[in-house]
Design a binder for these strands. Structure first.
Lengths: 144, 144
DNA sequence: AAAATAAAGGACAATTTTATCCGAATTATA
DNA sequence: TATAATTCGGATAAAATTGTCCTTTATTTT
């Protein structure tokens, strides 16, 4: 469904949010450790998330990644997915046709649109805050 | 969502079904031409579909691929996807966690399960016959 | 029996994705 | 001001996916 990069990206963003709720800024190393992902690759993904303003980065000692409380509500999963995987999920035919739409649909078009609409709705309505608080109260996990 | 291989596989299977409805057996070349896919790669995928009994192949002159009318009802999209992409779509966590289940869910678990259940239902309830007949009456397309 | 046709299968090539490494830039602290 | 911690960015490597080519095998037709 999502690329590896996107999976790491979501997990990383949620972890950053969780720690920001505690007032902590976190380093790439800590993030990679805590979400169980390859360090250098995760660093690249964090750069993408920073460039697309999903999270905020601070250089130098005591630096790291953080996200403001208000942004946790604004930032939806859809933004993270878009920042990393582009609009693959939103655009494009399920069977890979270049031209596939209501006028000239592939055999799977309608059924596919239905599912993708649900997915899109889910991604657009789920905020980083929602995901982080689930973790905070110990209902969900990011590792293993 | 699906791999390229799987996209070609579904399109190929639907085309074979469509032609079988007309009593025609089709070659790799014709299939690749008609679904607009790379010939040799498509040949590999047809081999997989043949091995997993989604379609039937005949060697030699007048040979090619076909599928029996009764099998068009039995064969669901889920079988094709499974034959080519394995159980990726069915198993596994949306965020890539190795251990993710109701007891120890990732932050996206419930929302993800909901969407995947719909996808699974769709794949398991859609037959090759249904897809082929849509094509037959000119409602849907396989090219472009 | 020979020739021709078509799938099967193995080896290899290209591309994309995933992942690593290392030096440069930035900045807090001693 | 020097040092150390940290992100940034470029180059490269490894792995997976996508794609090609060529030989073998089966089978029909001549």
């Amino acid at each position: 469904m999502f690329s590896k990069a996107c999976e790491y990206g979501i997990r990383a963003a949620v972890y950053v949010a969780l720690q920001s709720l505690e007032g902590r800024r976190v380093s790439v190393n800590e993030i990679a450790e805590e979400i169980d992902s390859p360090i250098a690759f995760t660093a690249k993904i964090l750069q993408q998330l920073t460039r697309s303003k999903v999270i905020h980065s601070v250089k130098g000692p005591t630096g790291g990644f953080e996200i403001e409380r208000t942004d946790m509500d604004t930032v939806k999963l859809s933004m993270i997915v878009h920042a990393i995987d582009g609009d693959d999920i939103y655009v494009g035919c399920g069977l890979g046709l270049k031209e596939c739409n209501a006028k000239k649909p592939c055999p799977l078009h309608d059924k596919f649109v239905a599912i993708r609409t649900d997915l899109k709705k889910m991604l657009e309505s789920t905020s980083l805050y929602e995901l982080a608080t689930g973790l905070e109260v110990g209902l969900t996990y990011l590792k293993r």
